[in-house]
Structures are given as C-alpha cells and as structure tokens.
Write a protein that binds this DNA or RNA. Structure first.
Lengths: 331, 331
DNA sequence: CAATCGTATACAAACGTTTGTATATTCGCG
DNA sequence: CGCGAATATACAAACGTTTGTATACGATTG
C-alpha cells in the first residue's frame, strides 16, 4: 500500500506537504498541489482511513442507527442517506437496535468507539427517555434524528408531516362525499399517531363535521384490530374510515366486504404508509405515502450542513403525499 | 476519553500489559487480567478503533456491498448479516453499487481505504466480469459472495437453491393435478434463472411429463410480460404456470381471470420470491420463498469461519421454501 | 542594501494501539 | 545455594496521518 511518505519521497518533498496538498490546504503552491495529486493518482494512492481517523480524532464515517434495517421505511431512508453521504466522501456504518433499549446503547458505544463523525438515528420504541443517547454519543459528534425524534435533544430532526398527511386523507374522503368518517388512530404514546389524529380532527372541523369519539379507535394498527374497529364503526353508522396504518385499513376493507358493502361506493377507505401491497390488491387502496428515501436524504444533508460551525438546521418537516386509488375514488 | 495508558497508570502496569489483558492473551496472569478488566470497566474504557485498526492493519469492520439496500431481499440479508457480525464484535459498513459498475469499484476502494476485515457482496447486474473485484479488494481481505456470485472468485459463496425451489413448485402443481404447465422463465444470462428453468424441467420429466419449448417464455419477469406470456400459454392449452418471478405470476393471474378462468380450479399459478403482496392479494398466491435473512446470516458465519487460517467454506446452498396458498391449492 | 515581511516547505510530535524483544522475577532442580 | 528455565511484565518501536512550529527563501520597501 502506497503512503503519503512514498509520494513525498518520489517528489522530494515532505509528507506534511503531501498531506496538505491532498487536503487542498492554501499552504501549498498550486503547482505542487498538482504535482502531488498527479503522483498520487499515478502511484494509486488511497488514504489510510484508520490512520487519518486516529490523528484527527474522528472518522469519515457516519453511523446510522435504526430499529431494523429490514423494514421498508428504514431501508429506504438509509439508502437515501447513504447516497448523499457518499457524495460528500462519507461512508456509513449501520447498526440495528432491534427496538431494544440495550442494543441501542451498545450501538451508540460501537459508533463512538469507531469515532464516527455523526449519528443519524431513529430510536427504538422501547426508548422512552433519551439520557442514554446523550451519554453514549461522542461530545463533538453531530446527532441527527429522523422519524422518531426526541425534541429534548439538540440537533436536526427530520420528520413526516403526519398532521398534513392525515388532514389531506380525511379531507379527500369528505370531498368524495362520505358523510361519517371513522378513524383507526393507533397508539397515542407515539407522536406520529397523535399528529395524525389531530390532522383527522382538524379536517373534520374545517369541513363543518363533528368529532365523535365513538368512531375513533385507539387500538394497535394491525390487520385484525382494523377489522374489528371497522365492524364497530359501520355499526355506528360510518361510511368511511381513515386509518393511521395500511394493515388496519386492509382489515377495514375485509370487514366492509364481509358486511356486503361495496368499495368505494358504499364504504371508503384511506390508509397510511403506502405499503407495497396497497397498489396491488383489489380494490387498490388509497394511502398516504411517506417518502423515506427523501427523509434519509434530508437527514444526510442536515448532517453535512451541521458540519459547518455555527450552522443550525432544526426541524425539517417532509410532506406526506395522498395517493388516491380505488378504495376511496367514488367519482 | 480514557485510554489503555490511563488504565495502566492507575494499575501501575504498562500499556502493553493492559492491551494483552484486554485481548485475553495468555501472556498475562489471570489475576492481572481480572484487575485490568475491572479497572477498564470502572473507568468506562472503550477501545479507540481507528488506533487499533491502524496498528493491526485492518479494522473490526466488515463491508457489505449490495446493488441497493432499499430492496427487501438485500435489506433482509444485511439485517441477518449485521446481527451475526455484531455478536462477534464486528461492525458493518454499507455500500450500494446502484447496479452500477463504477460505483461498485468506488465502494470496494472505500472499503479497502477503511481497511475492512472482510467484504460480503452481491455484485451489480452490470458487472459481467470480476477482475475489478480482485483488483480493488485488500489482498488479505476475506471475500464472501452471496446471491449473485462469480464462481471464478475464491472464497465462500452463499446462494439460493433455485433448482430445488423451482423443482418443488412445479412438482406441487403436478401433484395438484394440473396437466400442462407453462413456465415464465426469465433472462437466461442470469444463473439463478437458468437453475430455476432446470428445476422446472427436471420436475416435469421426473413426473413423466414432456418438456415443450412452446410454453416456456424467456421474457423479463415483470407483470405485463407475465400477462402476455400467460395469454399465449392458455391459448396453447396450459392449465397452470410456474413463474420464476412473482410479478410475472401476478400478470398471469390477471390474464387467466380475464379469460374467465377460475383460480385455482381452472388455472394454477406458482410464483417465485414470496413478495409481500402474494399473501395479501385475492386469491393469495403460492410462491417459492427465498430466505434472505438466513442467507445474510450464513454469509456472516462464512466470514467468521474464514477468519481461522486454513478454514475453507466453499459454496453454501440455502434451500428455498414452497409456500402453498390459494392460487395453486385445488384440494 | 539591509531590514522586514510573506510565502512555501521542512521538521517533529502526536493520536492510541499492538507486538517483538528485553528484562526482571519466580520456581524447580541438582 | 546457584543455575537455568519458565513466567510475567516492561520497554520501545511502529502503523500513516495531521498539524503546530520552525526555517529557508525570495520579494518588497524605506
């Protein structure tokens, strides 16, 4: 492996000059910079990253920490982040918390051990406090949070506009002429679901409809819970459902079909997340899409921006997108 | 940050002893090893990985290189690999080739620059030769290939048993009483599809059926190609289709439905890949599942095994699994 | 022309770990 | 009790880079 000393020797200069030349320092003459980079290229020089990291105190690596990489949302976010970070000369190291508090701490320690320049993370659902993050992150490491964020923590936060998404979904159902719209709302311990509920409520009141707690269901957003919720909702006179999740929306469609309702004529459904099955099923399901790739991109960009001292990014809200399909398309 | 020198000073020994104690070398007394690890824990010591990597010439990081992390197969494989590697004290660095030859080379260079201990990769579809891999990988770096592999390259290779999967899928259709089974076979430039075709053929001949090239379709395995192929197949007297992809199988189901055939009574379909939509659609689709998580695990294990000098892993074939659902379940 | 300043490069130390070699200590054995 | 062997630890160098400080050289100016 060729080192900067090899280049220096070949050129009759010192390693320090080579280092500065390669780093683009103004302390080397343009002509020597050129000579150095040519020689480096011709000798096939590649920087020894560990050596660089040791000396500088941090690496050109960004740690990405997510609950599980095998989930479409996170893998797409990582993909987006990786693409941007690569462009800026950073590599990414991936850790999974498996939704587990202990693993999250271990991952943070690993990243600190590797002297990552930054951490881009979405915390485990079992992480209800954020002290462990403060404690296990390098003090000059940039922290970027996305999707699941702690507002108490400093640094950029990239989130879905859950309020707007739910608002648009509900608004769309009302526009399509549905008169009584139930809501499968999910677990209120999670900010995202609270925001979606609020978006739903705001859309109703904006359109002059009443909020009825009898047709809001706070169960987990899995298929069979959606099925049960929809049965009750229909019993209580609903002709549509906005669901904070796609799987529970799927359950709702099953329930409506079983009760002999036609979709979308008699019963309308809008889900959330735009899971891949929504476009393939019959009838295809309207859903409010997240843009995980974009969120990952923004997170990476926020990291890059934060590199400049003094730059503050704060919260970035990424719009969600209503995708209208058959399940809510009356006319 | 506390270093081994700090620990040494606190204990009145030298850094070298601390280093050896932490590494579990037989050159330190059991009692001092204990004292060192206790002191390290109480002082909150964490190894400086870059320093370690610099000195050792390689890091505790394994590079995983895939076409795109935002694909269910690869993200699950990575997830499996990461889980195993973490258990053994390795971190993973992720790179994407975006199915692009140039990016693949860049990624390999990045990994070498980071002195990764190993590379676990599935090459880009545009990589038709493998010289660039040999050239851009550290000479003592362990190479593990999975899914898309070059047999010319040394080291472990983890692949699906495509032959067995297609065999089982076809066999199942025959058992269900289908008499003339077409095949949407995919692109023959890819080994996986050649193996699937061979599995299909072997199942036919084993069961005393004839191979008819008129009902084997070598188009790309996308939905509309599957649709077209199925129309022709039905015209040519087929009552079932084995498809090397799920999307083309989906197209086949559409085609059969349009022609007024009932599924599975009049027409049977088995796809490949067990995409998430297969279980959700109506009728649900039988499919031959890959086990990407398991493949990732095996790849990581192969890396760990290869660490021992002299250990050879060779090719590991992971069985595929026929998942029978409504689209082929006649009785 | 000498003093001063600025530019370009050289020198050298440091980052924290690992590891080959040397030294000190202990033990067994004659 | 002394010698050699074995055990345990100390010493020191090295990995390749970055960066603060020093030096050499040339240019500018009074």
């Amino acid at each position: 492996m060729v080192t900067i000393s090899d280049i220096a020797r070949a050129l009759g200069v010192t390693p320090s000059t080579v280092s500065r030349a390669l780093a683009g320092s103004p302390r080397v003459k343009e002509s020597t910079r050129l000579a150095v980079s040519e020689m480096a290229a011709s000798m096939g020089y590649e920087r020894n990253e560990p050596a660089s990291s040791l000396r500088k105190g941090h690496s050109n690596v960004v740690g990405i920490l997510v609950p599980g990489i095998n989930r479409a949302f996170f893998s797409n976010a990582i993909s987006g982040a990786e693409t941007v970070l690569n462009l800026h000369g950073y590599s990414v190291i991936i850790c999974q918390s498996h939704e587990n508090f202990e693993d999250e701490i271990k991952a943070l320690k690993t990243m600190r051990s590797n002297r990552v320049a930054g951490v881009i993370m979405s915390h485990a659902s079992t992480s209800t406090t954020c002290d462990h993050i403060m404690e296990n992150i390098g003090q000059d490491t940039i922290l970027v949070q996305f999707d699941r964020v702690f507002n108490e923590l400093p640094g950029p936060k990239i989130v879905n506009d859950n309020f707007q998404g739910a608002y648009e979904g509900t608004h769309h159902l009302i526009e399509q002429g549905y008169k009584r719209i139930g809501n499968i709302a999910g677990f209120m311990g999670t900010l995202a679901y609270r925001d979606r509920l609020n978006g739903y409520k705001k859309a109703l009141t904006d359109m002059g409809m009443e909020i009825d707690e009898d047709i809001i269901f706070y169960d987990s957003i899995v298929e069979n819970k959606g099925y049960e919720a929809a049965k009750k909702a229909i019993e209580r006179g609903c002709d549509a459902i906005y669901s904070a999740g796609d799987f529970s929306a799927l359950g709702a469609i099953q329930a409506a079909k079983e009760l002999g309702l036609r979709i979308p004529e008699d019963f309308g459904v809008v889900g959330t997340a735009n899971e891949s099955f929504t476009s393939i099923m019959t009838p295809s399901m309207s859903s409010i899409a997240q843009h995980p790739y974009e969120i990952g991109r923004r997170a990476a960009q926020a990291f890059i921006t934060s590199l400049k001292p003094g730059a503050e990014v704060g919260e970035v809200v990424v719009p969600m997108e209503l995708i209208v399909r058959e399940s809510s398309m009356r006319n």
